[in-house]
Design a protein around this nucleic acid. Structure first.
Lengths: 147, 147
DNA sequence: AAAAGTAATGCAAAATAGTTGCTATTGCTT
DNA sequence: AAGCAATAGCAACTATTTTGCATTACTTTT
């Protein structure tokens, strides 16, 4: 019952996310967004491909993810081996300047990427040679499930 | 004159780096290491391929870089698009635990990765759910050459 | 409710990055 | 000088991501 409600809410949320960004509400995009909402960690294209039921074309996933990233719905971080992971943005992100500057944790064991929304990235002092736009902070170690 | 001295020193340094890590002093590895010593930013395999004179085999580069990484001579960071960049380690790094926890700066314009040796990565408090091994801190913006 | 416009999908193909197996070299040790 | 093992070189392969083009299907307009 609760689950049903939650899923319904997520579906509604996904629809709103799409329309509020001027994107079309197609089945697969709604499905993708709901998958992200059910997750506490970032997903790779491979993860998604396994989870998505309706379609199996990777290209569609790539294009949806890129579109979401450009519209500030998702942000991306490369994992340790350089593969991209995606996760939902906080409110107020745009494609060119993501506001959600929280830390990420990547498990050395299962290789999952967790968004630590509550861990804000501390500032460092930077020489005038560099003009700062954004920062990322990634921790590696062992996650709760792998200990 | 100064340059010649510097190059000679780098050659000597490169030889020492290899022998002190039990690696053989081959031409291309010496060349690779000297290229890194002349750089203030991290290099990708593509960068190296363009710069290296003697050989053009990517596989050799990959294997050399992996070997250097495992031996604590180089460390790697993925750039924004997930491609790997390599840069010299500080003293005392080993393959499994790199000590040089400094911040990196990636230019949005030229896409170069700079090692900010003097910028130490600040700690954050992390929930007990996670067991921390290492951290990385990457800043994005515009570098001195691109402003 | 149909038509039109355009965003999104699917398929094929290609570009790019990185890996693996195997043989030939070559640096280093004895 | 000989022999071992590390490294280089070549070929082929895997994986990831991108691109072009024709088709489908949302959304808006009429």
């Amino acid at each position: 019952m609760k689950k049903a409600t939650k899923v319904m809410n997520n579906h509604k949320l996904a629809e709103d996310l799409l329309t509020s960004h001027g994107l079309r509400r197609t089945q697969i995009r709604l499905e993708i967004l709901q998958l992200f909402m059910q997750q506490d960690h970032a997903l790779s294209v491979n993860d998604l491909e396994k989870m998505v039921k309706s379609s199996h074309d990777r290209v569609t996933l790539y294009r949806a993810l890129n579109s979401f990233e450009e519209n500030g719905i998702l942000h991306q971080t490369p994992d340790k081996s350089g593969n991209m992971r995606y996760a939902l943005c906080a409110e107020g992100c745009s494609g060119h300047h993501h506001k959600d500057e929280h830390a990420h944790f990547i498990c050395d064991e299962c290789n999952q990427t967790y968004c630590l929304q509550e861990v804000k990235i501390p500032d460092v002092k930077l020489s005038d040679d560099y003009q700062l736009n954004s920062v990322s902070y990634t921790m590696n170690g062992i996650c709760k499930d792998c200990q």
